[in-house]
Design a protein around this nucleic acid. Sequence first.
DNA 1: TATCAAAACGCGACCAGCACGCAACAGCGT
DNA 2: ACGCTGTTGCGTGCTGGTCGCGTTTTGATA
Lengths: 150, 150
Amino acid sequence: MSSTVDELVAQLRDGGSRVTTARRLVLTALVKGAPHPTAEELLVAVRALAPDVHASTVYRNLEELERLGVVVHTHLGHGPATYHLATEAHGHLVCEVCGATMEAPEDLFHAMAEGAKRRLGFELRPYHFAVLGVCVDCAAIAAAPEPSVG
Amino acid sequence: MSSTVDELVAQLRDGGSRVTTARRLVLTALVKGAPHPTAEELLVAVRALAPDVHASTVYRNLEELERLGVVVHTHLGHGPATYHLATEAHGHLVCEVCGATMEAPEDLFHAMAEGAKRRLGFELRPYHFAVLGVCVDCAAIAAAPEPSVG
DNA sequence: TATCAAAACGCGACCAGCACGCAACAGCGT
DNA sequence: ACGCTGTTGCGTGCTGGTCGCGTTTTGATA
């Protein structure tokens, strides 16, 4: 198991931040909820237990948690940003056709990262924005001769 | 020289679209303007010659031009999308610190694209979203021992 | 346990970037 | 020049997110 809510709360205190109900619930939602929640989804999860929490509170908490290095956000495409614990940071491959999201194997970026570093001095951070493309299934559909219209 | 406005206008006619003042001006701005214009910047360029063109007209034209394969848009980071001619499509590396944008060498994505294809069946489209990272200069600054505060 | 400064909250207003509905207008085939 | 229909200008609306302000809460200290 990577991180419990209590450990994350301890990180908050270490960082000088206070521990509030909303904040704890955001962390709980991140630990126990679905894999790539948006701020909106986190808000829903938080409100399930504390209905009066305001959207801006969730946004501000995510910002603060990110400042402390507890969570990171990723853009998976055109929609809203998604959040996860910093301990679970990883690259993403997103299908432009169906929206399917998959975790990128860690070494997939190695060659490109090394090439960019050596040739351009550019240090890749391939986690912040997903790499777009077309997934197996959608590529198969696109390549199929005819979807047999009738 | 890649494309003249007249060639692009011909593409419009071939696609069944009409050629209007606003549309021609958008194309002109794309051909002759700065490298990675946003919709807003294109609007300004268009309005320099036709002050009454409305923002939504530019957005709709860009959408239509994209449908016809004349232009493509790219997301360089958190800001608005940027547009360029489809003939000039290329990958981008964007510095998360200073925002510097550079064109990615064509072969930089080869290894990753092949790896993704062979191992996951995933066909990379690395042009739609930029790859983020830290540029040479900002990496140097970050690595410097002390910026000599006084 | 009471006190209190500062942090965080709830709330609403606001912002950027963009999409949409509609009536008027203009391109272009005839 | 005519008329069909795509396009425009305009306002309005939506999503995703930020900000300022007055109130509440946290948690160190007494």
